[in-house]
Amino acid sequence: MHGSASSGWLLVALCAATGAYCLLRMRSSVEAQRRTAADEALMGFGMALMAVPAAAFTPPPWAWPAYAAVFGAAAVRALWTARTSTHHLHHLVGAGAMVYMALAMGGSPAHGHGGSGVPLLTGALLLYFAGYVLLTGVRLVPVPAVAASGGSETGTGGGSDGWGDRPELARACRLSMGIAMVAMLLTM
């Protein structure tokens, strides 16, 4: 992505930290949460790699089609799992946006960062993710405490429930990735 190096590194740090937290969420005892966390970890680390400032590292020409292939596969998986969960429709849009950005950046001069995408598609994705960020932010504010199934109020009783299964942290993770996606799309 083009832009200042300091904002690029902040975006890398945000996305990598989000991806790392999503890896921790994969320890959940709930299979659906593990799958969702895996999808979000892939998105977080992929976004971190794509956000590395061009001054620090210019990916080889084969990297952009590889990103497109990985996120294309993630989009197919999200489409398949969207049959049972509407949240995976968001993963489908996110993976599709990553494919779009990878192809746009791969088609830019010298295969550098900051490709020039289709303005209408970029605008539509910006509107979607800006709306997603606002909606997720509103949902994050009044999250009530949820008692664990084992009867413990701390969320640590009755299994591996803990801070990795807290819904407000998962929402904050999704919010930060949405904000990062908006920032990445703005540089298109």
Rank of each mutant, 00 (worst) to 15 (best):
H2T: 15
S4W: 09
S6D: 13
A13W: 04
A16T: 05
M26V: 13
R27H: 03
E31V: 13
A32Q: 08
T36F: 12
T36E: 06
A41K: 04
M47A: 14
A48H: 03
F57I: 05
F57W: 15
W64I: 13
W64P: 06
A68R: 05
F71K: 09
A75M: 12
A75H: 02
L79V: 04
A82R: 12
A82P: 12
A82L: 11
T84Y: 11
T84W: 12
H91D: 03
A95D: 05
A97P: 05
V99R: 01
A102W: 01
M105G: 14
S108F: 03
A110M: 10
G114I: 11
L121G: 11
T122M: 09
A124F: 08
L126I: 09
Y132E: 06
Y132V: 02
V133R: 01
G137P: 13
V141P: 02
V146A: 12
S152V: 00
S152A: 09
E153A: 02
E153C: 03
T156D: 12
G158I: 06
G158D: 04
G162P: 04
W163G: 12
D165R: 14
D165Y: 09
C173P: 01
L175I: 09
G178N: 04
V182N: 13
M184I: 05
L185D: 08
